[in-house]
Amino acid sequence: MDKTINLTLKVWRQAGPKAKGKFETYKIDNVSTDSSFLEMMDVLNEQLVAERKEPVAFDHDCREGICGMCSMYINGHPHGPDGEITTCQLHMRNFNDGQTITIEPWRSAAFPIIKDLMVDRGAYDKIIQAGGYVNVNTGGVPDGNAIPIGKDIADEAMDAASCIGCGACAAACKNGSAMLFVAAKVSQLALLPQGKVEGAHRAKAMVAKMDELGFGNCTNTGACEAECPKNVSISHIARLNREFLVAKFQD
């Protein structure tokens, strides 16, 4: 038999980017503890539609923790109280019967709210466009093993590359800083020989774009690392600082 719980949800409702938002309270009964948080939100929306009310808008896509689309600030934590997972991987067994759950959108000046729990995370795409790539010349495909790379370096680069760009770091940061995201995107390339060539330009361009888009300054609280669903380490931020400072002093 499934265990079920009854919940009270306090959900942020906001009709549009310019509209004034407020919390609405909903009761939802018989939620299976085996369901995911997003499935619970689906059930809530069906309930709202049946009552002829506007369903809650929220972002989601793959529902297996790799696309980085789901957001939601649940009970004071991005992606909910459980660690190292995204909202879609959060199970209702983390909550108790009769509990009140407060659901808010990411709140950051650089992530404006589109509707309800959806925010515009296009700022992260713009940072990537500023330099988060390697230029590749056309021609024959080079042999993958032609450039030897140490296992520890490959692992470190892979850890940085596990960032899914969900925005939890900037959402959790008291300064609204995107440093962990930018650090991961700079690190994954800076560690590898293919990415080193454009390293200086990349660090400068991505940091300049980050500042331009209105993200805050990192004060090394470590909240981003604690909330990151992929557990990206703040040691990447030190690498970003290093890359950026070296690039600036070379000028």
């Binding site: 109280p81 808010e104 609280t221 604690a226």
Partner: peptide, 30 residues
């Protein structure tokens, strides 16, 4: 820096704010 950071945080604040594990109190109140 603090002025910029407060602006970056945005006008709306979180209604529920929990502390994360490993985040020292002093780091948030420098």
């Amino acid at each position: 820096l603090t002025f910029q950071n407060m602006r970056a945080r945005g006008a709306e604040r979180y209604a529920v704010k929990n502390n994360q594990k490993g985040v020292s109190w002093s780091s948030q109140n420098m």
